[in-house]
Amino acid sequence: MGAVRDSITRTLTEAFQPASLEVVDESHLHKGHAGWSEGGETHFRVRITAPAFAGMTRVAIHRAINDALKAELAGDVHALAIEAKAA
């Protein structure tokens, strides 16, 4: 349990050296919805603050995060909510 969450945390930490990072498994909130499966780890919320995002548009920040997590998103992760800021 928590392997995907650990992987997301590790990948984002390496990619952006965030000042703060929180990865929340919200799969239980989507029980029975599309993409949900037993055992969780399908729906995540990422709260990340990283100076690396300074000067980037929201779309650019989300693209950078999605790109970094390409492997995870190609797997069982169905949804990734992103709350990102530079500071």
Binding site: V59, N66, A79
Partner: peptide, 25 residues
Amino acid sequence: SNWPTIPQLYVKGEFVGGCDIVREM
């Protein structure tokens, strides 16, 4: 738009963002 998720909002031909971005804006 090289954007992996749905929904996607476009205004006057321009990609604005997905759910999180639209809500933040």
